[in-house]
Simulated scan of single mutants.
Amino acid sequence: MLFDNHGRPITYLRLAVTDKCNLRCFYCMPEEGLDWLSRAELMSYEEMLRVCRVMVNMGIGKIRITGGEPFVRKDIMQLLTAIAGLDGLNELNITTNGVLTAPYVPELKKIGVRSVNLSLDTLDANRFFTITRRDEFSNVIAAMEAMLHHDMEVKINAVVMDGKNTQDILPLVELTKNLPVSVRFIEEMPFNGDGHVYDGLHWDYVRILDEIKAKYPQIKKLDDPANSTAYNYHIPGHKGSIGIIAAYSRTFCGTCNRIRITPQGQLKTCLYDDGVLNVRDLLRAGTEDDKLQNILRDAFKHRPKDGREAERARIAKTGIHESMATIGG
């Protein structure tokens, strides 16, 4: 197994396959989008597959494909099928906004993808348009229905934003009454990509839970799985469950088992760091697998203790206003 310098096991890779997205969620990127990476700047599928193979051989057992939006990248199923076939990989999951996902669901199920994180911040079509700046609500709901029809585990990720969608907290909770979904409420983070100053967190994990408890005082705490980023809950009589992710408060750093690779190959050992090395460049320089493993192990031995430490170092160097689309979620 892999361990970092704080004794935490590293078993989970989040691989962003593109920075492009077909939505323009205001908390993630500016309305006009970003300066998208060129094809040459992106890691190729061959490079991504090689990195995944090396890391699985080192002890990574779970890979999540993120973006941007993964399904805007051409021929994405070729990569997913290849990664799913890696010896030693226990779990391959995907995070998607759902806009293009529904037609792929049967094939995802066939290659062994059991769980999908679906980004959905509201159940109101008008608010969906306001938040995402795109009229795609019906396609997202169709994707959710397709996943449930094929008995996939569906986790709905909703970023809670003051003055934007707090009225959706309870309707989203209500989804868990009749559907076997996990609705996870996420604290807003300062990764909007437009450089404006983040004015602080108005809805932290405590306030979100209090909002739910006011309507559902019978809500019960569940045991959280090892390395869980969410505090998990269940309302008696409901088919699904609820999670609250303290992404900005960073209460889960002490058990963090995940690392990230951005679309251009930057290895991030913490969501809040500035990237510690470029894996793409190492591959293109002809680095052999054994040497790459040693370089990665060394990077893991210099991991920040938590997101606060990583954030301080990043602010001192470059600021923190990168888009979540370029980080990879």
Rank of each mutant, 00 (worst) to 15 (best):
S241Q: 14
S241M: 07
S241I: 14
S241F: 12
I242H: 00
I242A: 00
I244W: 07
I244K: 02
I245A: 00
A246L: 08
A246R: 06
A246E: 03
A247H: 03
A247M: 02
Y248V: 02
Y248E: 06
Y248A: 04
S249N: 04
S249F: 11
S249D: 06
S249I: 03
R250Q: 15
R250S: 15
R250C: 07
R250A: 06
R250D: 09
T251A: 05
T251W: 06
T251M: 05
F252N: 02
F252D: 00
F252A: 00
F252G: 00
G254F: 10
G254E: 10
N257F: 06
N257G: 06
R258E: 01
R258S: 04
I259T: 06
I259S: 02
R260C: 00
I261C: 13
I261V: 08
I261F: 11
I261S: 08
T262D: 03
T262E: 02
P263S: 00
P263C: 00
P263F: 01
P263R: 01
Q264I: 08
Q264P: 04
G265F: 15
L267M: 09
L267T: 08
T269C: 10
L271S: 01
L271Q: 05
L271R: 07
L271W: 12
L271M: 05
Y272R: 04
D273R: 00
D273N: 01
D274I: 07
D274F: 10
D274K: 08
G275I: 05
V276R: 11
L277S: 03
L277I: 13
N278L: 10
N278H: 10
N278T: 05
V279Y: 09
V279M: 05
V279R: 04
R280Q: 15
D281P: 04
D281Q: 15
L282M: 14
L282H: 12
L283V: 07
R284H: 04
R284F: 05
R284V: 03
R284N: 07
A285W: 14
G286V: 11
G286Q: 11
G286E: 10
E288T: 10
D289K: 03
D289T: 07
D289S: 06
D290P: 08
D290K: 14
D290H: 09
K291Q: 04
L292V: 04
L292Q: 03
Q293D: 10
Q293P: 13
Q293T: 13
N294G: 15
N294E: 11
N294I: 10
N294Q: 15
I295P: 13
I295V: 11
I295Q: 11
L296A: 03
L296S: 04
R297S: 13
D298E: 13
D298S: 07
